[in-house]
């Protein structure tokens, strides 16, 4: 039996298992932690542009976080009292998702043409108005690009959640590895890869759609 027929057989005999894995993967291991990361990283990114102290502190901390190997981070989290299951997985993915969003929010705002900021201030905008009416809208494309990076990256990281009992498509991959069944590995890896590609394409569309029209025009 070829690998493909084996794979197909497995998929058709275990649809529930695979669908559950996909659902867990998307909702629990990507949507929740990335959503949380957006809620935390965008405001922090804004704060970084306002306060010099935070700038080096937060961006530095997030950078260091990024360099910790994912399995190591997961283990630390398990040991630190989160136990096994979804919780350490969600926390780890959340921590990884923060940096791209934080950094892009920060650079997106910082790279708004200073003469435009100066004009906005010169017209008598308060700092808040300048942020909400000028800096954030103009930084939207860059911030969205950061979110896209985080989201696609999370799909990959999420496959590791299985090692700490976090479920998702990683379960299939780990099972397959343990049992030396390539088709089971494939049943987890293939959807994960497709999911990453699709999500990337979708978010890139969204990015274009949400970019203010005046910014989309040439130059």
């Amino acid at each position: 039996m070829s690998l493909f027929t084996q794979f197909w057989q497995y998929v058709s005999t275990h649809p529930d298992q695979i669908l559950t894995a996909i659902r867990e993967h998307i909702l629990l291991l990507v949507a929740v932690p990335v959503g949380l990361a957006i809620l935390v990283a965008v405001p922090l990114g804004i704060l970084c542009t306002r306060y010099r102290v935070l700038e080096s502190l937060l961006l530095g901390a997030a950078g260091v976080m990024q360099t910790i190997p994912s399995l190591a981070l997961l283990s630390f989290l398990v040991m630190s009292g989160l136990g096994i299951g979804f919780r350490p997985a969600i926390v780890a993915i959340f921590l990884y998702a923060i940096l791209p969003i934080l950094r892009n929010t920060y650079t997106g705002i910082k790279s708004v043409d200073p003469s435009i900021k100066k004009a906005a201030k010169g017209m008598g905008m308060t700092d808040m108005q300048c942020l909400m009416l000028v800096e954030l809208p103009m930084a939207v494309p860059v911030i969205l690009a950061g979110i896209r990076t985080s989201a696609t990256m999370s799909i990959g990281t999420a496959t590791l959640a299985a090692f700490v009992g976090g479920g998702g498509l990683g379960n299939l991959i780990v099972t397959g590895l343990r049992m030396l069944r390539d088709h089971i590995i494939l049943a987890g890896a293939l959807p994960a890869a497709l999911m990453a590609i699709t999500l990337d394409a979708l978010l890139s569309r969204l990015e274009k759609a949400l970019t203010p029209r005046g910014l989309r025009l040439g130059k």
Binding site: D113, A119, A120, R213, L215, L217
Partner: peptide, 8 residues
């Protein structure tokens, strides 16, 4: 000095 219209 550099016009500074809000592009959006």
């Amino acid at each position: 000095q550099n016009i500074g219209l809000l592009p959006h």
